[in-house]
Design a binder for these strands. Structure first.
Length: 460
RNA sequence: GUCCCCAUCGUCUAGCCCGGUCCAGGACACCACCCUUUCACGGUGAGAACCGGGGUUCGAAUCCCCGUGGGGACGCCA
C-alpha cells in the first residue's frame, strides 16, 4: 500500500448528485491507481441542514457505484471517527493550538482566524459594506491539474460559529491534517477556498497536501453548473431507472478525463490502470444524457444471459407502481427468462422492458390503433392470418429456427413473402409493430397462445 | 464589482506541454444508404470545430499578449 491518502468528504444536505459522484470517483480512481487509501468522511457540521436520510443516500449511491471506501463510516479505520459531528473534541484541541499561537480572536460571539499583515478598511461594492482587509502575501497553490495558481487571501474569516460549531474551512483542514490526507481532489468550485485552507495549514505548521481541482459538470441545458435540482442530476435516479452502475462509472470517468486514445468503453480495471491526475482536463464538461444512455445500452447488450435476467428481475421488482411489471414478475421463472433474453438485444435500457414485454404476460395488452389501421389497409391480412392458423399444427415450436422453417414452408406453398404474414401476425400477437423477432415471439408464447390470439384477432 | 479558472465539431474529446506528419482524428446526437422478418443492434457515408485580434516564427490549433465568451468564488453553507 502506498502512502497516498485521499478522501471524499460529502455533506448530507441533499441528494447525491452526478458532480459529487464524479468527485468521489476520481478520488477512488486515484487511490486505486496508486494503491493508496480512499477515505470517506462525512462533513455534517451544519446541524440545521443535515439528515440521516441523505446520509444513507450517500452510502447507498457509493456502494451501488462500486466506490468502496477503505476508511470511514461503517468500515472504521485508525483515524476515526469519520463523521465530523463526532469529532468536536479534536476541533477544540486544534482550536486551542491556533489560539495559543495568537491566530484567533472573538467577534460577535464567533471565533475568527487572524491573518498576518497590515490592516486597512475598504468599502466592498459587492457586499455593500466596509470591511477590514489585511495585506498578505499571495498563497501559492501548486495544483496537480491547474498548475501554479496564486490567490490572495486578505480577510479574516470565521472558524467557529457563535453557536459553538466549527465551520467547513476549519474542520476540512483539521481533518485533512489529522487523517494525514496527502492529496485533496475536489471540484473547481473549491479553488477559491484553497487560499483559506493553505493559510490554515501553515498556521498549524502542517504540510500542505497536494491539491487537484477537477473541472465542474455543467447542466445540459441552460447556464451554470449542474445542481441537485437539474434533470438527471441524481444518482439514485439512475439506480431507480435500472442503469448499469458500471456504465455510469465508465461515462463519468470520461467527463474530464480520457485514456489518451480513442477508447471509451473500458473495464474499470483498465480505467484504474490508466487514470492519473495530470490526465484530467481543465475545462468544464457539459452533461450529456444521450451519451450516457448509449453507454448503458452497450453494457446491457454484452451482459451474460444470467446477469441480464437477474438485472431485469431486479428492475421489475423495483417497479411496484407498474402493473405490467408486477404481472411479469408473477409469471413462471423460466418463461420470464425467455422473454427477457428475447428482448435483451432490442432495448436501450431496462426501463423499456415492462412496456416492451407486456403482451407476453397478459391477454389484456393494448392494441395500437394506428398500427392496426396501417396493417389492415394493406393486402389481405386477415386471409393471411387464416392461413397461418391452418399451418400452425404443422409448425415445430421447439426453436426459433424450426418456427422459421415452418413459416417458410407456408410462404413457399402460397408463393408469397415473409412480409405478408409478419406484420399481421405481430399485430395479432403483440398489438404493435415493434418487438423481438416474430419467430422468437411465437416460440416463447407457444402454439396454443399464438393460435388463440390469431383467432381472437380474426374475430375482432 | 473584485479575485480565480477555462476556451477544438451541437455535446464529450484527441492533438497543445516538446510549433511543421492536422485543408484537425474518435465518440454521442442528427441525416442518407446498406443489412433486415417489425423495431433495434451493426456497417458505410455525409454535414459539422481550432472564439476574435495582435505578436513571435520560414511556419501556430499548438508559444506570448489583449479582447470576448463561459464557469467558479466572494456566508457565522459545504
Amino acid at each position: 500500500m502506498s502512502s497516498v491518502r485521499v478522501r471524499f468528504a460529502p455533506s448530507p444536505t441533499g441528494f447525491f448528485h452526478i458532480g459529487s459522484a464524479r468527485t468521489a470517483l476520481f478520488n477512488w480512481l486515484y487511490a486505486r491507481h496508486t494503491g493508496g487509501t480512499f477515505v470517506l468522511r462525512i462533513e455534517d457540521t451544519d446541524k440545521e441542514r443535515n439528515s440521516e436520510q441523505f446520509l444513507n443516500v450517500i452510502y447507498d449511491s457509493l456502494t451501488w457505484l462500486g466506490l468502496t471506501w477503505d476508511e470511514g463510516p461503517k468500515v472504521g479505520g485508525s483515524f476515526g471517527p469519520y463523521r465530523q459531528s463526532e469529532r468536536a473534541d479534536i476541533y477544540r484541541e486544534f482550536l486551542a493550538k491556533l489560539t495559543a499561537a495568537g491566530r484567533t480572536y472573538e467577534k460577535d460571539g464567533a471565533i475568527w482566524f487572524k491573518l498576518l499583515g497590515e490592516r486597512y478598511e475598504v468599502f466592498d461594492d459587492h457586499r455593500k459594506k466596509t470591511v477590514t482587509k489585511v495585506r498578505t502575501a499571495p498563497s501559492v497553490i501548486d495544483d496537480r491539474i491547474r498548475g501554479r495558481v496564486e490567490r490572495v487571501e486578505d480577510e479574516d474569516f470565521v472558524i467557529f460559529r457563535s453557536d459553538g460549531n466549527p465551520v467547513f474551512h476549519f474542520v476540512n483542514v483539521v481533518d485533512d491534517i489529522a487523517m494525514q490526507i496527502t492529496h485533496v481532489i475536489r471540484g473547481e468550485d473549491h479553488l477559491s477556498n484553497t487560499s483559506k485552507h493553505v493559510e490554515l495549514f501553515k498556521a498549524f505548521g502542517a504540510p500542505v497536501p497536494q491539491f487537484a481541482h477537477i473541472p465542474l459538470i455543467l447542466k445540459q441545458n441552460g447556464p451554470g453548473k449542474m445542481s441537485k435540482r437539474d434533470q438527471g442530476a441524481l444518482i439514485e435516479e439512475y439506480q431507480r431507472r435500472g442503469y448499469i452502475p458500471e456504465a455510469l462509472v465508465n461515462f463519468l470517468s470520461l467527463l474530464g478525463w480520457n485514456p489518451g486514445d480513442n477508447r471509451e468503453k473500458m473495464p474499470i480495471a483498465e480505467i484504474v490502470r490508466l487514470f492519473d491526475l495530470p490526465g484530467v482536463n481543465q475545462s468544464n464538461a457539459r452533461f450529456d444524457d444521450k451519451k450516457l444512455a448509449h453507454m448503458n445500452m452497450a453494457y446491457l447488450l454484452e451482459l451474460p444471459a444470467d446477469a441480464f435476467v437477474a438485472k431485469a428481475r431486479e428492475y421489475f421488482a423495483g417497479q411496484t407502481e407498474n402493473a405490467a411489471a408486477r404481472t411479469a414478475l408473477a409469471a413462471d421463472e423460466a418463461y420470464f427468462r425467455e422473454v427477457m433474453l428475447l428482448s435483451q438485444p432490442k432495448i436501450k435500457g431496462l426501463e423499456e422492458l415492462p412496456a416492451y414485454t407486456v403482451y407476453f404476460f397478459t391477454e389484456e395488452f393494448p392494441i395500437d390503433a394506428k398500427v392496426r389501421d396501417k396493417v389492415l389497409a394493406k393486402g389481405e391480412p386477415k386471409a393471411r392470418l387464416g392461413e397461418l392458423i391452418e399451418a400452425l399444427p404443422t409448425i415445430d415450436f421447439s426453436t426459433d429456427t424450426t418456427v422459421e422453417d415452418g413459416l417458410k414452408q407456408l410462404i413457399a406453398a402460397k408463393g408469397l413473402g415473409f412480409g405478408d404474414y409478419q406484420a399481421v401476425a405481430r399485430l395479432a400477437l403483440s398489438g404493435t409493430n415493434v418487438g423481438p423477432s416474430i419467430t422468437g415471439m411465437m416460440r416463447v408464447l407457444g402454439r396454443d397462445r399464438v393460435k388463440a390470439r390469431f383467432e381472437r384477432f380474426l374475430a375482432s
